[in-house]
């Protein structure tokens, strides 16, 4: 439950979008963010919102999940509205700003809810792979990222167990005093840290046993396939971007 929240809130629901190559999804996300920032009038922002909404419906994930996402940044939105009102900004401009934020949040939610975090890591590795030519160890950083993501549920389980056993020894987690809260955090961090060190040790042994090495090339067996829909998706986004830029110039 808690781990589901942290691991990018991946919601395992099959849909057209979830089957897209993670790289095309990430590129599209970047293009969309640029578009949203550039769109300067209300109609465009509403048009973009309807575009995102269509995507949201396509994912077949319950709307309440998306609502919760937007709801979680309500204070940021409120803050923006208040600042803008104080600066006597026009109401339409405020509406555009709020819509922009919502558009970006919803679009990235579509990305994270339809792409497992490990695939996201692979996507990031692909995007950064040209840096390999500059001798930057992208492959190894990607592996570290993948392992970190892969172990988040394990780490959360361990934290839960430690908290439960401390609760069983009389620790009161609902106490209001700052001293107690700090103490509770410290008492959790120490065993977690030691467990992490042990795990790092074990993992380095496992990497050696599984023949991982820093220097040579490695195959990527389950490379995500690139299909016509992926190219089409990027093309559509680029097309929309061009229109928005053109509108801005004309």
């Amino acid at each position: 439950m808690l781990s589901n929240f942290f691991v990018g809130r991946f919601y395992d629901s099959p849909s057209t979008i979830s089957k897209l190559n993670p790289l095309s999804k990430m590129i599209s996300t970047l293009i969309f963010i640029v578009m949203t920032i550039l769109a300067k009038d209300l109609r465009l922002s509403i048009a973009l919102f309807s575009f995102v909404f269509v995507l949201v419906l396509n994912t077949r994930i319950p709307l309440r999940v998306y609502f919760k996402t937007v709801w979680s940044i309500k204070f940021l939105i409120l803050f923006m509205i208040i600042i803008n009102l104080i600066l006597k900004v026009e109401l339409t401009i405020i509406a555009i700003t709020v819509l922009k934020i919502i558009n970006i949040v919803l679009y990235t939610a579509v990305l994270t809810l339809t792409t497992s975090p490990l695939l996201l890591a692979k996507g990031i590795e692909k995007i950064l792979s040209p840096l390999n030519k500059l001798k930057i160890p992208v492959k190894n950083m990607a592996l570290s990222l993948t392992l970190a993501i892969r172990f988040i549920p394990t780490i959360i389980n361990e934290a839960n167990k430690i908290l439960k056993s401390q609760a069983s020894r009389g620790v009161d987690f609902y106490s209001k005093s700052i001293k107690d809260k700090l103490s509770a955090v410290k008492n959790l961090l120490i065993p977690m840290f030691i467990l992490s060190l042990k795990r790092a040790d074990e993992l380095s042994l496992i990497m050696e046993v599984r023949l991982f090495n820093l220097k040579s090339d490695r195959t990527n067996y389950r490379e995500e396939r690139w299909s016509f829909i992926d190219t089409y998706t990027i093309f559509v986004h680029l097309f929309m971007l061009v229109i928005i830029i053109a509108k801005g110039i004309i």
């Binding site: 167990k161 430690i162 439960k164 056993s165 401390q166 008492n187 065993p191 030691i194 467990l195």
Partner: peptide
């Protein structure tokens, strides 16, 4: 007393 209680030492 949980499984592997020694993992909770701090």
């Amino acid at each position: 007393i949980f499984e592997f209680p020694e993992q909770q030492f701090f």
